[in-house]
């Protein structure tokens, strides 16, 4: 464990807290992509199958349960709970996620760390996480303006993987034979997708005024 990875995990937890607060207190899922939340649920449920045999640390096992529980709760609330379910707009939030899941599944089959079923599923979850934010970014693009809490949610989510990139650099230089090309590649793509958002997020927050984040 190093400070970058710890801060990354805290940023990830913060993103869950912000989103859960928004949809439970704000009683609205407007501006939130259910598609992205469904992808995250698939990512965590598939990657953390090793909950039952990989006890590398209590910290990991605990957070795996937290992430599965939170992502499932968010999908449940937006899909089934009133009044949030009525604030979800299927016409707007209509990114074809099958075009993300399919290629990631093929990639997981072909490029993985071991030819075992779990390793293929694990690689699939790493690739899928890298692109899971796309439906959310498309939804924000369509709406042009980003609601304040939503902008903090996306920023925390982007920061989490950006901090993980720093963690991988740190581990590469401090540990022997540390090699994780799959997560390095996917994590770079994942963080890259946020660069445009971060630019607009920074511009809108720079003056200290909480001007709404505008996406062109």
């Amino acid at each position: 464990m190093n400070i970058f990875r710890f801060l990354g995990d805290m940023s990830h937890i913060l993103s869950f807290v912000i989103l859960l607060l928004k949809i439970t207190q704000g009683k609205s899922a407007a501006g939130i992509s259910l598609r992205t939340q469904e992808l995250y649920m698939i990512v965590f449920c598939s990657r953390y199958l090793d909950l039952f045999w990989n006890f590398s640390s209590l910290y990991n096992s605990f957070l795996k349960v937290v992430f599965i529980a939170c992502s499932s709760a968010i999908v449940y609330i937006i899909r089934f709970k009133s009044p949030q379910k009525d604030t979800w707009n299927p016409e707007l939030d209509n990114f074809p996620i099958q075009y993300l899941i399919g290629p990631c599944a093929v990639a997981g089959l072909l490029i993985n760390q071991d030819w075992t079923p779990f390793e293929m599923i694990w690689a699939f979850s790493i690739y899928l996480e890298a692109v899971a934010i796309l439906p959310q970014l498309f939804l924000l693009q369509k709406q042009g303006e980003v609601e304040n809490l939503t902008s903090h949610y996306v920023a925390a989510l982007g920061a989490y993987r950006g901090l993980y990139l720093m963690n991988w650099v740190y581990r590469y230089f401090t540990e022997d034979d540390y090699l994780q090309r799959i997560v390095w590649f996917a994590g770079t793509v994942q963080t890259g997708l946020y660069i445009d958002f971060f630019y607009h997020y920074y511009q809108s927050k720079r003056g200290g005024l909480s001007r709404p984040v505008k996406l062109p």
Binding site: R5, N54, S56, L63, Y164, V183
Partner: peptide, 10 residues
């Protein structure tokens, strides 16, 4: 033989 990869990160 190669030991299975250990995933020590989330």
């Amino acid at each position: 033989g190669k030991e299975p990869p250990v995933h020590d990160e989330l």
